[in-house]
Computed example of a mutant assay.
Amino acid sequence: MIDLGISKLALIGAVALIVIGPEKLPRVARTVGTLLGKAQRYVADVKAEVNRSMELDELKKMKESMETAARDVESSVSTGASDFEKSWSEATTGLNGSAMSSGSDLSALGDGSFPTYKHPKKNWRTKQTAMPHWYKARTGVRTRAQSGAARVARFRPRSTSVSPR
Rank of each mutant, 00 (worst) to 15 (best):
L56F: 05
D57K: 12
T93P: 02
T68H: 12
A39M: 11
R30G: 00
K63P: 01
G33D: 07
A16D: 02
T79M: 10
Y42A: 11
V50G: 07
G33P: 02
Y117S: 01
K24E: 04
N123F: 10
G21V: 00
G112A: 06
R144D: 04
A29W: 03
S78Y: 12
A137G: 14
A91F: 08
S107L: 11
P115F: 00
R30A: 00
P120Y: 12
H119R: 14
I12T: 04
K63F: 03
P157V: 00
L56Q: 12
W124F: 11
F155W: 09
K122L: 14
W124C: 01
A130E: 07
R165V: 09
S147M: 00
L25A: 03
G80D: 08
F155T: 01
E67S: 05
L56E: 08
D3E: 12
W134S: 15
A70T: 02
P164H: 12
N96I: 05
R27M: 01
Q146D: 03
L4K: 09
M131Q: 04
V15D: 08
G21D: 01
S104M: 11
M54I: 04
A16T: 02
T126K: 09
V32S: 11
Q146Y: 10
M131C: 06
V46P: 07
G140V: 02
S75T: 05
R41W: 05
S101R: 12
L11D: 06
A10K: 08
I18V: 03
E49P: 01
I12F: 13
A130I: 00
W88K: 04
P157G: 00
T126V: 03
R154M: 05
R71Y: 07
V162S: 13
E90T: 01
D57Y: 06
D105R: 15
L95H: 14
A130T: 02
D72V: 00
S82G: 02
T139K: 15
S113E: 04
L9T: 07
W134G: 10
A10G: 04
G140D: 08
A69T: 03
K61M: 06
T129K: 08
P132S: 12
V50R: 13
K8G: 08
W88I: 00
M62H: 08
K60A: 09
A108Q: 15
T160W: 03
K136W: 13
A48Q: 11
G97I: 11
L17Q: 12
V141G: 04
S159K: 06
R27G: 05
T126R: 10
G103K: 13
L56V: 01
L25I: 02
N96H: 08
A29N: 04
S78A: 15
V46D: 14
M100H: 13
G103R: 13
S107V: 03
L59P: 08
K61R: 14
Q128V: 00
K63N: 03
Y117T: 00
P164W: 10
A108H: 13
P115D: 00
K61G: 12
V32L: 13
T139W: 15
L56D: 07
L106S: 11
G110V: 05
W134E: 15
